[in-house]
C-alpha cells in the first residue's frame, strides 16, 4: 500500500523527521516494494498557519492510505481521519527504510484517538465541540463559568 513517511530528504535512505506539518519532505513509499513512489517537497514548511492541514491535503491527494510520523496535531488528525488515512505516530529517528521495516514488522500502532474536529476554538464545557462527520468543524462553544 502507499504509506507517507515524513523525512529530512527525498530518498529511502534519508532520515525521518518527527514533525508532520513542518517536515521538509513527504515521502510516499510502497510498503511491499520498499520503493519511493513519490517524494514531495513540503511547501507547508513556510506556511504561516495550517501547515498540518496543507500536508494532510497533499497526502489525501496522493492517495496514501497511511501516514507514519512523529506527532499529528488535532486539526490535521481530524482532516486525515475525514480522508480515511490511518495515522501512525512516534516514528523512530532512523532512515526511512528502517522506519518502513519497523512498520512492516508491526512496531507502530494506529493512533485512533477521536480528533476534536476543528478543535482550537469553541471552548465551553461540552457543548459546541463538533464531532467527526459534521460539515463545519467549528464548535459554537459558549463561555461557561468555572
Amino acid at each position: 500500500m502507499k504509506l507517507c513517511i515524513t523525512a529530512d530528504g527525498n530518498s529511502i535512505e534519508s532520515l525521518t523527521d518527527s514533525s508532520f506539518g513542518r517536515a521538509p519532505w513527504l515521502i510516499i513509499v510502497d510498503t511491499e516494494q520498499y520503493t519511493v513512489v513519490e517524494a514531495i517537497e513540503n511547501s507547508g514548511v513556510n506556511a504561516s498557519q495550517g501547515a498540518g492541514i496543507a500536508a494532510a491535503q497533499t497526502i489525501a491527494d496522493k492517495g496514501a492510505l497511511g501516514l507514519l510520523t512523529g506527532r499529528v496535531g488535532p486539526k490535521a488528525q481530524a482532516a486525515l481521519q475525514a480522508a480515511g488515512v490511518k495515522i501512525y505516530e512516534n516514528i523512530g529517528r532512523c532512515s526511512v527504510r528502517e522506519a518502513l521495516e519497523q512498520f512492516n514488522a508491526g512496531k507502530y500502532q494506529e493512533s485512533t484517538g477521536t480528533a476534536e474536529y476543528g478543535s482550537g476554538c469553541g471552548s465551553g464545557k461540552g457543548g459546541g465541540r463538533g464531532s467527526g462527520g459534521r460539515g463545519m468543524g467549528r464548535g459554537q462553544g459558549r463561555r461557561g463559568g468555572m
Partner: peptide, 23 residues
C-alpha cells in the same frame, strides 16, 4: 483551497470541502 491562506480548507474526496482550521 488555494485561496485560503490559512490552509483551513480540506478536500477529503471529490466535491467535498470541509473547514478544518482557523477561519
Amino acid at each position: 483551497i488555494s485561496a485560503c491562506r490559512l490552509n483551513s480548507l480540506f478536500r477529503p474526496k471529490e466535491k467535498t470541502i470541509l473547514l478544518m482550521g482557523e477561519c
